[in-house]
Amino acid sequence: MGLRNIVVTLKVTPKPEEIRFDPVTKTIDRSKATNEINPADKNALEMALQLKDRYGGRVIVVSMGPPFWEPFLKLAVAMGADDAVLVSDRALAGSDTLPTSLTLARAIQRIGDYDIILTGEESSDGGTGQVPPGIAEWLGIPHVTYITSIEIIEPGKARVKRTIKGGYEILEVDMPFLASVELGCNTPRFPDFRRKRWAEREFKLKTWSIADLGLSPEEVGFKGSATTVDTLMELKPPERLRSRITGAPDEIAEELARIIRELLR
């Protein structure tokens, strides 16, 4: 019941609490923010590695982004991925979810031989969650969103658990399929120290341009997008009293009790 390729899409995102908004230029300053593998994508990668541990197959991570993402892809390899592909091209700048899903779908086709494609449920920056079903549509394969586990029940067939309002549902899906994985549904493993050194020093990831994927500059980036951003705005925190209550626990409790009684009246 060996699996063929398990492809994981992966994005690098700035920690949302560390980005700053410049109200004058109306741009987002990410320069001071720590970058990380998008949290939900890490859960997708962990799920892929667990599938590989159980059923075999090769785990390949694929990413569309600038060259500085390389170390993050190598981190994924250090965690256990067998190969990594970075699609990097200036023409991709400004892509909305339409060309992004197209580019990733083309890269996945080029990787080929896939049984399962896993993505995070959404990114912590854009957070649209639209790319996963989009990729599946470009590839013409079924997809299931918001899953928390996968089990292979017979060759070519898997059983997935999907979160729904009020609970969950179990679906049987034919391979190949795409699934988006819920944030926090597992605990991503730490990279093995020796594998990490190897990944950093010796492993060579594949870098593909859009030409490698048979895409023209008109199909991607700003030109290939179907939406445009007119402007950005910062949502200021709502006006709050911001009254600080300090002291011994008993004093604090007394004060809180007074406030709550007042509010409930």
Binding site: G127, T128, Q130, G134
Partner: peptide, 21 residues
Amino acid sequence: RNGRDLAGRLAVRFRTGLQAH
């Protein structure tokens, strides 16, 4: 969850723009 699941798929089917939540 279901609305996003459906819309994400349809937007690509019709090669059209989709704004999120």
